[in-house]
Design a protein around this nucleic acid. Structure first.
Lengths: 343, 343
DNA sequence: CTGAAAGCGCTTACAG
DNA sequence: CTGAAAGCGCTTACAG
């Protein structure tokens, strides 16, 4: 890079002190009582020379980087990709840069990322936590590093968070099925210590119970997060074949729904004629598939904005005094073709 | 944040000079002839105290940030989200952090992003260029800022780039249709100054011509990139209705394919019975849709790795001497259910 | 084999 | 109303 212009150059050209120039750059000119004509002179030259302060020097001096770290589960995923996009945009509006990375839900990766980002002096972090991240998060708290969790919380950690009302989403989705006449509703989820999966299951169970419908064991399928694609598809296929009476299927998460569509296709079950289908989380496939799939959608923009605002408020107010606050946003039930009134 | 430990603390605790400690941290101890016992003492304490150098100070002193900027079109998009993910991962392996951002194909946004990232002292940039970015890119070249373009090039700019062989992808896809007996193949694309869209159209035209098939005007539909979703869907619907003979449709890009599926659904044209469909770029929807859609897929990992390697090699070798190099990667034809041999 | 010192570009308490 | 100077944490040319 070419030699950049520095505050010293500006000061020299104007025959002013560095201090004076610095004051006007940082908007402290007024309160320091710099004359208006001086302010204007400086402002003009800054524009003319296209001067921008050196961030590294500023950071070194002030300890403020105006950068936040964003750690998501999977950037290649519709939900996280779009959340990242909105957070980046909103952060930018507020004068912040964003370091971005994916964990692939791997705790070791997550720990390394947190470490690396702290090392890069981020002012704060927005994190989709993985399992086994408690110690790392406690360390952040102990070191007064502002952070907010999103998409899921870790119950043992007292942290700021933004999450979806997963119980409500699952409850509403189940109720929608029941109202449309479905009774033998299967539930497909992943084995997980993640709070949000538990709550979705609770939502499903509560809605069934409130409608006086019993759930037996063969009605719920749990697969492992890291099971390979083929196995999961096969497991879902076997599940629906074995349990004869099912008239509807609830997929607890985005990617399970995608796998589930594939599985039903393979075992030649037609949606919605043979079986209604609903899923948590929206995506392009669900919207455009024939039939389109009924979902409980996460309000991406709202989640992103809440997360960045919460983080910046913590950064500004300082971590110590503020108690942890949690935001819960409501999912949106989007009724589509996959769950019509039962014939 | 708590006060971090500095090189001074390490030096003091060991009763060594800062210089010595710095040499061992930077692996220059050997060549400077520091005794092995000293090296070990320093190493041990660094680990024990969990010391990590302050990046800001280092950057200020050396001008090297070990950070690159990545500017993509749309993080929420399957292709770009996944490319970003791989680039981030590979950069991380090579000791680099990544600033990430989307332009939404808006030149003004792109310019601001470049400016902001330069301001953050990135060592180099990987950019999906928008139209009208020539001046900005020339300025990068003039200022010796390393950068590589990806996904598309701007022909008037002499830059490093990694692009897909778009002509080959479109040619192969068209040939595949022709081989399967389709003759009246429509082409839906966007009006664009982007080189890759031109090449896809050329690929389509060349394949048709090589097969002795004529193309008339009513066979090609061009929509504007920024036309709203509804309008594009309506336009595609009208297009296929008006042009009666069409037996196959080629969508020149990912999102047009998605819109196209929606449009065909609306006008009740059944794929592949009434019309075969192929599209450029793969995604979940194309893979899982019924029928699944034949595509020319971009090798995401290869593109990402080529881009980061090219950038880092430029960063390392210095911009001035190296001539611009371009990498062209081949798309992969994935045959699926939407383009069976014509009955 | 090791150290004292300059300097990267800022901000800010202190002085006038 | 404005300036001289210290110091943030490093790296590195120079000296011994």
């Amino acid at each position: 890079m070419t030699k950049k212009i520095s505050i010293k150059d500006i000061a020299k050209e104007l025959e002013l002190s560095i201090t004076t120039v610095s004051f006007v750059i940082n908007g402290k000119a007024e309160e320091m009582g710099i004359s208006e004509s001086t302010i204007n002179k400086v402002m003009d030259l800054i524009v003319k020379r296209d001067y921008t302060p050196n961030n590294a020097a500023r950071l070194l001096r002030t300890g403020k980087s105006n950068t936040i770290g964003l750690i998501v589960e999977d950037l290649g995923n519709y939900f996280f990709g779009n959340v990242a996009k909105v957070i980046e945009l909103e952060a930018s509006k507020r004068g912040y840069n964003v370091f971005l990375s994916s964990t692939d839900n791997n705790a070791k990766t997550a720990k390394e990322l947190i470490r690396k980002m702290r090392n890069s002096s981020v002012d704060g972090l927005i994190i989709t936590p993985t399992r086994g991240l408690k110690d790392e998060l406690d360390k952040l708290t102990a070191d007064h590093v502002p952070y907010v969790l999103f998409d899921r919380q870790i119950h043992e950690v007292d942290a700021n968070y933004v999450v979806l009302d997963n119980h409500k989403g699952a409850y509403d989705l189940t109720k929608h099925l029941i109202k449309n006449g479905y009774e033998d509703i299967g539930f497909v989820t992943i084995i997980s210590e993640m709070s949000q999966m538990d709550e979705r299951e609770r939502g499903y169970r509560d809605a069934m119970q409130d409608a006086g419908l019993l759930i037996d064991k063969s009605q719920v399928l749990k697969v492992r997060f890291d099971d390979p694609y083929d196995e999961v598809v096969a497991a879902i296929g076997k599940f629906v074949k074995r349990r004869k009476g099912l008239d509807a299927l609830f997929f607890a998460t985005n990617y399970l729904g995608v796998y589930g569509i594939e599985a039903l296709k393979k075992v030649k079950i037609k949606i919605p004629y043979d079986m209604a289908v609903v899923s948590f989380d929206d995506n392009d496939l669900f919207r455009l598939f024939t039939p389109s799939i009924t979902v409980a959608a996460q309000p991406i923009r709202e989640i992103a904005v809440e997360a960045i605002d919460l983080l910046l408020s913590v950064i500004k107010s300082g971590v110590k005094e503020s108690h942890s606050t949690g935001k819960v946003v409501s999912p949106e039930l989007i009724q589509r073709e996959s769950s019509p009134p039962k014939l």
